[in-house]
Amino acid sequence: MKKAWIIALNTFHESLRKKTFYILLVVALVVIGASRFFSFLAAEDELKMIKDVSFSTIEFFGALIAIFTALAAVSGEIEKRTIYPLLSKPITRSNFIIGKLMGQSLIILLNVILMSIFFIVLLFIKKSPPDIETFKTIFLIFIELVLIGSITLAVATFATDAFNLIFSFFLYIVGHLISYGKSLLERVENVVLKGLGEMLYTVIPNYENFNIKDKVVVGVQVSWQYIGQTFIYGIIYIAIAVLIGIYFFNKREV
């Protein structure tokens, strides 16, 4: 675990040198900042708007950063051949994958924290300090982003960057729409189709589970139990993604 952590810090360090991180961060901050110019709205609506836009921005730009860092984490090392000296050190291949996951999660965390600080400052300016519900929302977004990154990381161990990029974005969209699929599924009569649908529904992570902003924005409280359950749901999917990543990376010739 200590070795994974050393690799994690190196990955974190490396990502901080990339322009992508800063560009995405700046664009995200601009979007969040722009949300306060809806001042033609009534004060209450404006606040809702700011929250809605900010949560969505943290989630969307966080997802971009998660996907791009995870893409670079494995194939970057292979392309630049830095993987040769690394794998010749006394580390296991699982140390490598777990280290990469921890490193990219640190980057995601930093990004979420920076965007949230900006958002919270904005709330203070609007004389509406954040409540605990705001933090619950951000916490679940963070878990979702780590999950998104871990899936891209897992796919990177066996697929090309191009495939991975398309797959990750596709999954991002499908993972958000899957709840609709579930309600459609209830109307399906064919047993085979239904079974297949149920299977897909179980396999594909439901990213909407992590989305509580619609409730929080209108002032509905979300129970700690729900937060806990969703956290565990996320951890299970992350663990599965990491195991898949380790499995394929163990077979990967670099």
Partner: peptide, 23 residues
């Protein structure tokens, strides 16, 4: 390795520190 390549944003001592820690 043949034609070795290392993390190019690090300095020599930083590279040695990273690998040393892995040992």
């Amino acid at each position: 390795p043949e034609n070795p390549y290392y993390y190019d944003y690090l300095t020599g001592p930083e590279i040695l520190m990273f690998y040393g820690k892995l040992f």
